[in-house]
């Protein structure tokens, strides 16, 4: 099978202080931005969900909107290194208290694909969704899954996200990252695209990428943000997809080889 070309059509970011990518790129943080609205999902359905879940839904929705995709039709890939780790620890605490019974509302929101499920419910999307974890390479591997959906002809449009929230205090010796979600909207259509995105591949050597601000530099979603910054700079050629130092090193995880890379070119 000859792969179809894959193009970038939309981008999104949400973090405390930044309601969208525009405010981040403009360097205009707003202290009032504390919770993602994630309006796609109704209030009752969102009850008991984590900040990570609501952030993932928010950025996937924003990226689809930025690209002009119908959220009911596009495929979605939700990447996260740690998943619903905050809820997992709430459940552990519930086990230690009283009769050791877990809340059903917490339990149903504890799976890695909670955001994926709620997005499909909110968007009335009956198609493909998945949830990926790939350690420090979570973004690169989530991008690979989304890229393959389009390149193989299975879907014409896909949104891929990477979202991470702070680890619970029990685990914080292994990482000190904050809450951040980044999403990209991809399509097979070159018309109006921001860039063509080559297949993500393992890197044979260190591959450059734009510097990401210190606040997000070691974050698992940093490579997604670096890709967005690269598009802003009209970057052409190989682009590294492995998070720089910080978050990876502090987790004590060996990053095999030189990580992952893609290639950006004009649409």
């Amino acid at each position: 099978m000859s792969p179809r070309d894959v193009y970038l059509h939309g981008r999104a970011l949400w973090a405390p202080g930044y309601a969208n990518l525009h405010t981040f790129l403009a360097g205009e943080p707003d202290e009032a931005v504390k919770k993602p609205p994630s309006k796609l999902v109704g209030g009752r359905m969102k009850r008991g969900t984590s900040p990570m879940c609501r952030t993932a839904i928010e950025v996937v929705t924003q990226a689809a909107e930025d690209a002009g995709f119908d959220p009911a039709e596009c495929a979605t890939v939700f990447g996260s290194y740690h998943g619903e780790i905050e809820i997992a620890f709430h459940q552990l605490e519930m086990m230690r208290d009283g009769e050791g019974i877990i809340s059903p509302a917490r339990f149903k929101n504890s799976v890695h694909n909670t955001a994926a499920g709620l997005f499909t419910i909110g968007a009335k999307n009956e198609g493909f969704t998945t949830a990926i974890a790939g350690g420090p390479h979570t973004f690169a591997l989530s991008l690979l899954e989304a890229w393959a959906l389009i390149a193989s002809g299975e879907y014409d449009e896909a949104v891929v996200s990477t979202t991470e929230e702070p680890l619970p205090s029990f685990l914080d010796r292994w990482s000190d990252h904050g809450l951040l979600g980044v999403a990209l909207a991809l399509s097979a259509d070159p018309e109006g695209a921001l860039a063509r995105i080559g297949v993500p591949t393992p890197a044979r050597e260190a591959v450059p990428h734009p510097e990401v601000s210190e606040a997000f530099g070691g974050h698992v979603a940093a490579p997604a943000l670096a890709l967005i910054l690269a598009v802003e700079e009209r970057w052409r050629g190989p682009l590294g997809l492995t998070p720089p130092g910080g978050g990876v090193a502090s987790l004590g995880v060996t990053v095999p080889g030189r990580g992952w890379q893609t290639e950006l070119s004009a649409p």
């Binding site: 290194y81 740690h82 969704t129 974890a133 790939g134 591997l141 690979l144 393992p202």
Partner: peptide
């Protein structure tokens, strides 16, 4: 504990060096 821990374990056990990731949709 982490999702990729057993991926890394299996990769170390087997010598597989291709793409490796966890799909976690319950």
């Amino acid at each position: 504990h982490s999702f990729h821990a057993f991926l890394d374990f299996l990769a170390e056990l087997s010598g597989i060096e291709g793409p490796r990731y966890v799909v976690s949709t319950a």
